[in-house]
Design a binder for these strands. Structure first.
Lengths: 102, 102
DNA sequence: TCAATATATTAGTGTATACTTACGTTAGTG
DNA sequence: CACTAACGTAAGTATACACTAATATATTGA
C-alpha cells in the first residue's frame, strides 16, 4: 500500500491534478497530456513520475509511446484515509460546535 | 468553498497530518498539540494557520488559550473531489487493465 | 498596573520544489 | 545503418517551504 505522504504531495500540485483531469476519461500518451498544459513536455514527464510513484497513475508502453491511465491503488489508500479517519471527525465536530455557542 | 490547492497542500505535510491526528478525538489547546510533536511550538502555530486557511481545522478562544478542533468544511470539499472525480476513474480503470493484457 | 501565561508573528536560513534547456534512450522506418 | 518520433533524464536556477530563535500580542490575576 502506498503511504499518504506521496499521495497528498502528488495531489498538492495543480499541474499534477490537471494531468489527472486530462486522463480521467481515458488513457492518453504523454505527448498528448502535455499538449493542453502550460509547461514544457519534460516538466510533464517529471510530474508523471511523481504521480506514478504515488500509484495514482499507470504506465503502459505501445511502440515509442507511453500511455498513462489512472491507477486506483493510490485512490484506495485515500479512501481508507477517509473511512478510517474522518468518520470520527464528523461526529466529534458536533461537540465542538455545540460548546462554541453561549 | 475551499479550493483543493490549499487542502491538498495542507495534507501533504506529515507534521500537519500529525496535528490532525492529535485532535481527531476532540479539540485541544495549541500548547497540548505541540507537546507530542518533534518541532517547536511556533512551528506548530504556523502549521495550525495553514490548516485553518484550508478550513481543515477551527479555532475557538478560551481565555489565553486557543482550542483547535476539526472543521468538516475542507473535508466536504475533498469528498466532492472524490464523488465528482473518481467515480469515473474506477470504471475507466477496467478498460485500461483489459487492454493491457495480451 | 505589573507580571505571568498562552500563543502568534517576524526575520533569517538551509533545503526542497518546479521549471527550463540540453542531452540521452528506445522503437520503428527508409 | 541512418533518421525520425516520442519519450525520459540531467544540470542548473529561481522560488517556496519548514524550521528555529527572538519578539510581539492578548488575556488573566495579584
Amino acid at each position: 500500500m502506498q503511504n499518504l505522504d506521496n499521495i497528498f504531495f502528488a495531489l498538492s500540485d495543480p499541474t499534477r491534478r490537471d494531468v489527472l483531469e486530462r486522463i480521467r476519461n481515458g488513457p492518453m500518451p504523454a505527448g498528448k497530456i502535455a499538449e493542453g498544459l502550460p509547461v514544457t513536455r519534460p516538466a510533464v514527464s517529471q510530474h508523471l513520475r511523481i504521480l506514478k510513484d504515488a500509484e495514482l497513475i499507470q504506465e503502459r508502453r505501445e511502440g515509442t509511446k507511453r500511455i498513462y491511465g489512472l491507477n486506483p491503488l493510490g485512490l484506495e489508500a485515500l479512501k481508507e484515509f477517509f473511512d478510517d479517519y474522518w468518520s470520527v471527525a464528523m461526529t466529534r465536530f458536533k461537540d465542538f460546535v455545540e460548546t462554541e455557542e453561549p
